[in-house]
Design a protein around this nucleic acid. Sequence first.
DNA 1: GCGACAG
DNA 2: ATCTTGTCGC
Length: 267
Amino acid sequence: MGNFLASFKFCSLSVLNFRIQDELKRKLITEDDFPWEIPSSSSSVDFGDGGERKEGLKYVGGVDISFLKEDPSIACGTLVVLELDSLNVVYDDFSVDMLHIPYVPGFLAFREVPILLKLLEKMKKNAHPFYPQLLMVDGNGILHPRGFGLACHLGVMADLPTIGIGKNLHHVEGLNHSEVRDQLDAGDDKQSVYLYGNSGHTLGVAMRSTLGALKPIFLSIGHRISLTTAMKVVKMTCNYRVPEPIRQADLRSREYLRKHPFVPQCL
DNA sequence: GCGACAG
DNA sequence: ATCTTGTCGC
């Protein structure tokens, strides 16, 4: 009986998760859909005419989750917000939870979205002035077996513009690591190559985000942003290989777990 | 058939 | 994701 229930649970999970991804995918927006102006890569120009202009992108969020080595089911979800100009962290928040959903490639969102969404909603409910205008997610967007990775899932759920940042290539639609590497090495000092799936659609881009970085990061559209704009924003935030919002979320997440051991908030 | 497979 | 020391370089 236990086996039956276990396998039923497993089956229903898989089937339902496919449907949930397909259903949410209908809400996906893959072009710029926000009122904020992306600051030019240099300093912002002040025309001094006092005229009204669009509000600029200022608060960029990053999310990550780290795990307890002693118990991989204990996770620390972390949300940080950085000021784009200075890349200073102006907000961080943490939530330690016990996860009951396993990691399955292609279904990462079902494991991580609840905890991340909770952190975002807490900030939104309090009408926090630093609520992010854009969110970077440690995981892929449309670079995904069904074109709906963690960054898309979280973006649609939170109704936020999101960018997916992968540190490893998810092998989808014939994409493979060595081919990408060869293409990057083909050019003299090629910094990025577009990722085309078997279907010919652009799924994302492999990008050497800093001069010294041999290994690229893999970015893809999450929600409500174009790939071109996503690349601009990511480049603006890369002091190191991993964009600062993700990097800070990662660093602080591990630190929090080190300093606040064994205190799950949800059971 | 075997291996690969975001975090 | 996590386990891990030193080491090379700016």
